[in-house]
Design a protein around this nucleic acid. Structure first.
Lengths: 197, 197
DNA sequence: CAAAATATGGAGACTATCTCCACTTGTCAA
DNA sequence: TTGACAAGTGGAGATAGTCTCCATATTTTG
C-alpha cells in the first residue's frame, strides 16, 4: 500500500507542494471556503495535476492526516516505552488535547471530513486506533484499568473532542472529558479477569 | 424567535410537508445523495418554495433537529421528576444511545451537518445542553456526582457518540463511553465543595 | 365578490467540479 | 550527448448542482 511509488521527479515535487499547501490551508481553517480549482493555483499547479494526485478533497485531506497520525503514533510508542502503562495512557490523552488545541483549524477540517465520508479515513485512523488500543491494553495488563470497556470507546470520546472544537469552553470541556474517561477507566467496576495472571 | 408566524394556510401545509419528507429522507440516510432540487419534487413542491422556506440544507436540518431535541428534553424532564438525580442522569444518557441507535440515519445526517457548519445548530442544541446541564447539576447537588467537571464535557462525549455512528462496533463502544462517563462522574476525585451545604 | 396580500413553481443564470488531451518535461539506453 | 519513449502537466470546456426571479395562482380581507 505504501510501496507503489516510482514517481517521476516533477510529479513528486508537485505532490509535495500540494500536501504542504494543504496543511497550510487546513490550519488556517479556509479549506471549505476555497474552490478546489483555486487551491490548485494556490499550490502552483494546474487543475488536472491536482485531480490526478488527489481525486477528491478527502483524498488530499487523508494525505495530510497520514502525517499527523504518524506523529501521534510515534509519541504513543515513545510514551509507552518510557512510562508505566497507566501514566503513558494518561499523558498521551492529555497530549492529544494539546495537539488538537494547537492545530485547531486542522482538527476542525479533519473532523468535518471525517463526518462527511467516514469511510475515507478508516485506513488512516486505524494506526491511531491501534496505538490507543495498545496503550489501553498495556494498562489493563498492569491491572491499572478495567477490562470491560473497549478501547474503541476512548476513540469515540476523542472523536467527540475533535468534532466539538468550536464550543466556547472547548479547552476546559475537552480536559473534562479526558478526566472522566481516565477516572472511568480506573473505576473499580468489572476488573475481575485481570487477576488471572 | 418562535413567535413570528402568521403563515398562510398553503404555506404552512408546504412547510410541514417539507419537514415531514426531510425527516423521512434523513432517516434513510439519503440526504446527501439527493440533489436539493430533487428533494423539493419529492416533497411535492417547487424549488422556489423549498428555498423560500429553507434557504439552505442546514436550515432544513435544523427544523428537523428542533423536533428531535424537544422530544429528548421532554424525556429528560420526566426522568428528572420521577427518579433520583443520579439515576435520572444515567437513564437519560443510556436512553440517548438507544435513541441514536434507533434513528441512525438521522443521527448521521445531523452529525455531518453539525460538523460542517457548527454555528447553525448552536441554538437548537442549547435546549438539549440545558437539559443535560440540569440533570448533572441535580446529581451534583445530591452529592452523587463530582462537581469539578463541566456538563459540557458530557455533551462532548455525546457528540462523539453521535458522530462516530459508523464504527463497526458502535453500539458496544457507545455504551462503553457512557459507562466511562458515568463512572468517571461518580469518581471520588474532586468532590470537595459538595459538602458545603 | 373584488382587491390586496401572500405564496407558488420551474425556467434559466450562475458557479464549482472534474475530464480530456495537445503539449511539456523527465528518463534511460546507446 | 542525443533521440525516442514514457510520464506528467495544465487549463479550456463539458457537466451538474444551487439558487434567483417573476409571471401566475391561491388565500385573505374588507
Amino acid at each position: 500500500m505504501t510501496a507503489d511509488k516510482p514517481l517521476r521527479a516533477d510529479a513528486k515535487r508537485n505532490r509535495e507542494a500540494l500536501i504542504a499547501k494543504a496543511r497550510e490551508v487546513f490550519d488556517a481553517g479556509d479549506f471549505f471556503d476555497l474552490r478546489f480549482d483555486d487551491f490548485a493555483r494556490l499550490a502552483g499547479v494546474g487543475t488536472g495535476t491536482l485531480y490526478r494526485h488527489f481525486p477528491t478533497r478527502e483524498a488530499l485531506a487523508e494525505a495530510v492526516y497520514h502525517g499527523e497520525v504518524a506523529t501521534l503514533c510515534d509519541r504513543a510508542r515513545r510514551l509507552q516505552a518510557t512510562l508505566p502503562a497507566a501514566e503513558a495512557l494518561a499523558t498521551f490523552l492529555r497530549g492529544m488535547v494539546d495537539h488538537i488545541d494547537a492545530h485547531e483549524g486542522l482538527a476542525r477540517t479533519l473532523a468535518t471530513l471525517m463526518a462527511d465520508r467516514s469511510g475515507a479515513f478508516a485506513e488512516g485512523s486505524q494506526a491511531l486506533e491501534q496505538a490507543v488500543t495498545d496503550l489501553v491494553a498495556a494498562a489493563v495488563r498492569d491491572g491499572a484499568v478495567r477490562d470491560d470497556v473497549d478501547a474503541g470507546a476512548v476513540m469515540m470520546a476523542l472523536h467527540g473532542i475533535g468534532a466539538a472544537h468550536d464550543r466556547p469552553g472547548w479547552r476546559a470541556e475537552a480536559d473534562g472529558v479526558i478526566t472522566l474517561v481516565l477516572d472511568g477507566l480506573r473505576s473499580s467496576a468489572g476488573r475481575s479477569a485481570t487477576s488471572a495472571s
